[in-house]
């Protein structure tokens, strides 16, 4: 259907044009529905995070956080909730949000206003050591990225440009290891980390992630495209292998390295099962695990839960906003590892 729209522009006649514009209207309608479906969960997260506990129960539900306000005796306004309504008398009983003071006012004296309860964020933030979780996640992510860059570029260089015993077999083993389901690693890795004394340490959440097979695969593909002449010239100039990798190959591979950095950041930021199992205390616990704990402890405070969820994903959303093109490209390649 979409092809009709792009074809034969030169042959447009009246009927065709009408058909085409009707088709395009349908396309735009479908797109709007699609975008709405994608955005609504986020909208709902943000909107709920800015509501008062009572507003969450309100019927009909509010899409934009709204509160009832009543005028105080001194002319200032305060947020209230409505206890009961007397239709015939035209009055409502209201109670202020912070106190128990109940009073009766004229229905016309209560107005609805959009207001955002940002204090939910402060409250959620203070109810669990989120600052610590944030620090942990950033620290872990930074180190994993650096480690992956070092181990992967060295290994990828060896695979791409050196001949050594067992090269092709080792590479094949690498690729087949990518198929092993995550749950297989769970129990043995836990015991290995216990034996190393690494449970509840940063290294448990960092070092095992240095072995990132797909980065090697991607970098190797790129390194192979760099012409051999460069290497020959460098060797004549007395350049060592390592210096050649550092001074020539890596500067020529910036785009691929950026991709590796992006999908390593996203992967590390979002990793959950591993840190859940390998940490018991808040000291080294990353954000995602902290969030899961918070959700178990929090239970019914939806507005606090959504505030916590919102500030957990905020860095990725902000980063996505600024570097969408790069991120889409990198993530799309990283998914190609199957």
């Amino acid at each position: 259907m979409e092809q009709t729209a792009t074809l034969h522009d030169r042959e447009l006649n009246a009927g065709y044009r009408m058909k085409r514009s009707a088709g395009m209207a349908a396309v735009y309608a479908a797109l709007v529905v699609g975008v709405a479906l994608m955005i609504v969960p986020f909208w709902w997260m943000i909107s709920t995070s800015l509501k008062s506990p009572l507003e969450i129960l309100a019927f009909p539900p509010t899409w934009i956080p709204t509160g009832h306000f009543a005028e105080r005796a001194d002319g200032t306004w305060e947020e209230v909730y409505i206890v009961s309504q007397d239709e015939t008398a035209g009055t409502v009983d209201v109670r202020s949000l912070d106190g128990d003071l109940e009073r009766t006012v004229a229905a016309s004296a209560v107005v609805d206003r959009i207001r955002f309860r940002f204090r939910n964020y402060a409250e959620a933030w203070s109810q669990a050591p989120f600052a610590r979780y944030y620090f942990n996640t950033i620290l872990i992510t930074v180190f994993v990225v650096m480690g992956v860059l070092v181990t992967s570029s060295l290994a990828a260089y060896a695979f791409a440009r050196m001949k050594f015993w067992g090269r092709d077999n080792i590479f094949l083993i690498f690729l087949s290891m990518m198929m092993v389901p995550q749950p297989v690693y769970l129990v043995p890795s836990y015991i290995i980390l216990v034996k190393l004394g690494w449970i509840d340490t940063y290294q448990a959440l960092i070092i095992p992630w240095f072995a990132h097979i797909f980065s090697i695969f991607l970098l190797r593909q790129h390194f192979k495209t760099i012409p051999n002449d460069l290497y020959d010239a460098a060797i004549i100039d007395g350049c060592s292998r390592f210096a050649f990798l550092w001074r020539v190959i890596l500067p020529l591979s910036k785009a691929v390295l950026v991709a590796v950095v992006i999908f390593t950041i996203v992967g590390t930021w979002n990793s959950f099962l591993w840190p859940l199992v390998m940490t018991n205390t808040p000291e080294v616990r990353p954000l995602q695990v902290g969030l899961a704990r918070f959700s178990q402890e929090q239970g019914t405070s939806h507005e606090l839960m959504m505030a916590a969820a919102a500030f957990s994903v905020a860095p990725l959303i902000v980063a996505y906003f600024f570097a969408q093109k790069q991120i889409i490209q990198s993530m799309a390649t990283s998914g190609l590892k199957g």
Binding site: S152, L154, A155, M162, M177, P188, I192, A211, R241, F242
Partner: peptide, 27 residues
């Protein structure tokens, strides 16, 4: 050349062996 290559591979290979291959066997 063999030694140099394995020196390049070593950081990765050690972690790969300890945290990706060994667990599968140990499991």
């Amino acid at each position: 050349e063999n030694l140099t290559a394995y020196a390049f591979l070593a950081p990765f290979l050690i972690i790969f062996a300890v945290f990706l291959v060994y667990p599968v066997v140990y499991s």
